[in-house]
């Protein structure tokens, strides 16, 4: 990692951490959910770099959330770190299995098959009345390595948990992008055959990416479940997947940080629209997306790049 980037990432993390002590609770809880969702978006970016778009990422998001709810409820586990780990790993496990199938698919067919799989999970959950059907389940109040905060302290603790997990994920994914396997994503998107001729297995590369993105989505779902305090089958519905793709496009695939900025921007705009136009918030949301695509083709992340260009132009 280049030094400037490290400083940048470090200061962004610090700024977010300081904000945790200064901003009112409602902003903190909004940011908590936004950053948890940012992990899912980061997973989508991992795939998008290889040219794959999933309309079924909600499958893993939902898996992560339900894993937390069920283990908390029936397994008696309350430790947040353990719960999040289990949530992420269960999603990654599922993805490893269905990856043998999914890794063979590309383009729209990949999108549609992943959509079908997530809708099957949705159907199963809705049919399972013992899990509350569409009403869902409440999630237990987590503890943090024995520390059991309540109310305002719980919100801040969850926020820091999400920050730490996101920072770790960002570092690891950043390292992955710079590794050989990560760097091959763009060649895979451009032309798989050429990558095969280099002696690499494209399906194994893609399978790895699927598992990574599922791990991220499951972790995001687990964190969101803890932050919201409730899970329901809608977490697996196709509109949830659609929203994540929406944020991915908004953010752009340019950098790791874009996922979190994009997600935060999306949550803020949505919440703002709800408050401003209770009955017409979709117009605002749709317009923001449309304008972003038309005028910021590389997403919000590209704003950062542009900023650099501007600076260089001024400072020879």
């Amino acid at each position: 990692m280049v030094r400037g980037d490290r400083i940048a990432a470090g200061s962004a993390f610090l700024a977010a951490a300081v904000a945790g002590f200064m901003l009112p609770d409602w902003i903190i809880s909004l940011a908590t959910i936004a950053f948890a969702n940012g992990l899912v978006v980061l997973g989508l970016i991992v795939m998008w770099r290889a040219g794959l778009v999933s309309f079924g990422q909600a499958l893993y998001y939902c898996m992560g959330g339900y894993a937390v709810a069920l283990i908390g409820r029936w397994g008696g586990v309350t430790d947040a770190f353990l719960l999040v780990l289990v949530g992420g790993l269960s999603a990654a496990g599922i993805s490893f299995v269905i990856g043998f199938l999914l890794a063979r698919y590309r383009e729209i067919f990949f999108a549609m098959l992943s959509l079908a799989l997530s809708m099957i999970l949705y159907g199963l959950l809705v049919k399972t009345e013992s899990l509350g059907s569409t009403d869902g389940l409440n999630v237990i109040v987590p503890t943090f390595l024995g520390y059991a905060p309540h109310q305002e302290k719980l919100i801040v603790a969850l926020y820091f948990l999400v920050l730490v997990v996101c920072a770790t994920a960002a570092l690891l994914v950043g390292a992955y992008f710079r590794s050989l396997a990560g760097a091959l994503a763009i060649p895979v998107r451009d032309n798989e055959l050429r990558v095969e001729f280099l002696g690499m297995s494209v399906s194994r590369l893609i399978h790895t990416k699927l598992v990574i993105s599922a791990l991220l989505a499951g972790t995001g779902g687990a964190l969101a479940a803890l932050a919201v305090g409730h899970v329901d089958p809608n977490m697996s519905y196709w509109t949830t997947s659609g929203e994540f793709v929406f944020i991915t496009i908004l953010a752009g695939a340019g950098s790791v940080g874009a996922a979190f900025v994009g997600s935060l921007a999306f949550e803020s705009v949505r919440s703002f629209a709800f408050a401003m136009l209770p009955q017409l918030w979709e117009i605002l949301l749709g317009s923001v997306l449309l304008l972003t695509i038309l005028f910021l083709p590389q997403g919000l992340g590209s704003l950062i790049e542009r900023l650099h260009w501007g600076r260089e132009a001024k400072a020879p």
């Binding site: 400083i7 940048a8 260009w309």
Partner: peptide, 11 residues
């Protein structure tokens, strides 16, 4: 380009 300072400030 990537090492330009001020990244964090922007965020």
């Amino acid at each position: 380009r990537r090492s330009a300072p001020g990244h964090g400030y922007f965020w």
